[in-house]
Amino acid sequence: MGLTVGWSAYLAEAFRSAYLAVDQGQLEAALAVGITPRRAFFRIIVPQAALIALSNIENLFIGLVKGTSLVYVLGLYDMYNDASNLSNQTNGIYQLQIFIILALIYWAFVLLIEWGFRTIAHRYQKVLG
């Protein structure tokens, strides 16, 4: 619940700033040619704002993945805690190797997220023209 409230505020700000970045002339032009305000909002403003917000959403999602050690407090799965426990079980002998592997896992997750968002953005830009 805490993560949902906290991260939803950041996400709302990403969408708000993207909405404000879309030129209001787009809405005025749509209204001038007879499109209803609701249809203009959902067909013209929202697609452009979503494309602008995509990079902010990507950064927020990556930040959430990196912040999984905060999730441990809530009792959910945490890779950092598992790495610490493994390091303690081996009396710290393999501590450097364990945390290098952990860093590589996080890096792989972030690269996967970035690839996914780039693919979405690329396809979305094709649709918008």
Rank of each mutant, 00 (worst) to 15 (best):
I62Y: 03
A108R: 05
F15Y: 13
Y106K: 01
V73A: 15
Q26N: 11
I113R: 01
F61E: 04
Y19M: 10
A32F: 11
F42K: 11
R43N: 15
Q48R: 11
L20K: 09
A12K: 00
R38A: 15
Q24I: 11
A12R: 00
Y106L: 08
G116A: 08
A49C: 06
A50V: 14
Q26M: 07
L74A: 12
N56F: 09
L70T: 06
N91S: 06
A53N: 01
L31S: 14
A83V: 07
P47K: 07
V65D: 04
L31Q: 08
I62S: 04
R39S: 12
Y19N: 04
D23C: 10
P37N: 10
P37E: 06
G75E: 10
A121S: 10
L20A: 11
L111I: 06
Y80S: 08
L96R: 03
L104I: 12
Q26W: 12
Q125L: 15
N91P: 00
M1D: 11
L70N: 05
I35D: 11
N85M: 14
L51S: 11
L60G: 06
T36C: 13
I35Q: 05
L54Y: 02
A103V: 07
R39P: 11
D78H: 08
Y80D: 04
L64Y: 04
A12P: 01
E28Y: 15
L20C: 01
G75N: 09
L111V: 06
R39G: 04
R123E: 13
G116F: 02
